[in-house]
Design a binder for these strands. Structure first.
Lengths: 132, 132
DNA sequence: TTTATAGTTTATAATGATTCTAAAAAACTG
DNA sequence: CAGTTTTTTAGAATCATTATAAACTATAAA
């Protein structure tokens, strides 16, 4: 199986559920944004068996911790995840309530001039809110 | 009362509760970040009477809609608000789970090169995550 | 003023995303 | 295989937020 090694390498046992979730998340032409609820529905459609909700939560969090997924910082009642782990940004269409990728190359270089003692920058994320 | 006009001007009746919440939020030397829970505690300490939780939620949302407050886009189980409504950004200290203001002048100019048809940019917000 | 009414506050219930629990199942190690 | 650890699972618990609907209040008109 294609994702067995990937999982083992990061110390996750390649269980049936994890491998199936990998398929749904990563066997795609394009990266995408999703909520847990979106993912549960995708799993229902694409796979015949069902995976427990708790497992979906566990797996998504495990994958996020291992760097296979990123959380998107946005205010919503649900948490949004992104299968695009490359350094990039987002538009948020306020009316449609939809996220759109904004590539690094579509944003001029961002230079953070202020430094915080004893801390280093882990990421710089831009959220561009859109209205009509 | 100092905030009566402000409220009237934006179509909000200057009720006792709203005026008191204004005091807690805006009678301060510095702007600050808060959750609803933080605000409820602040109200308990600074005022002698109590304001219903539902009213605190209603008021904060009303104030946000009128532009007296801004939500901070960040992933947390609670919603963070900011009394600093000037265009600015944030550091987020992952370890301490604390927000720090990042002034516009401390970030180089941000140029969004990608355009979305029929949409215009309402805001550009940068979140800089910090680690040790 | 009084009165009418539209807007507000309130306690409480409802909602809904997420996390917890603890027992059963599966994966791994030797 | 046998023993151990990890994972899955259904269901319960948690907790921020929103809804409800009755009591209250600000406001404007008479």
């Amino acid at each position: 199986m294609k994702y067995t090694e990937k999982l083992r390498n990061s110390g996750l046992r390649p269980t049936k559920q994890r491998l199936q979730i990998c398929e749904v998340l990563f066997d795609t032409e394009r990266t995408f944004h999703f909520t847990i609820n979106d993912l549960v529905n995708k799993i229902k459609k694409q796979l015949n068996n069902k995976i427990s909700l708790a497992t979906v939560y566990n797996t998504v969090h495990a994958f996020e911790k291992k760097g296979y997924l990123k959380q998107i910082p946005i205010n919503s009642n649900q948490t949004y995840f992104d299968t695009n782990i490359a350094d990039h940004h987002h538009f948020y269409d306020l009316k449609e309530e939809k996220l759109i990728d904004l590539e690094n190359s579509d944003v001029g270089p961002i230079n953070i001039l202020k430094k915080i003692d004893g801390k280093k920058i882990k990421s710089v994320e831009v959220l561009v809110k859109l209205e009509d």
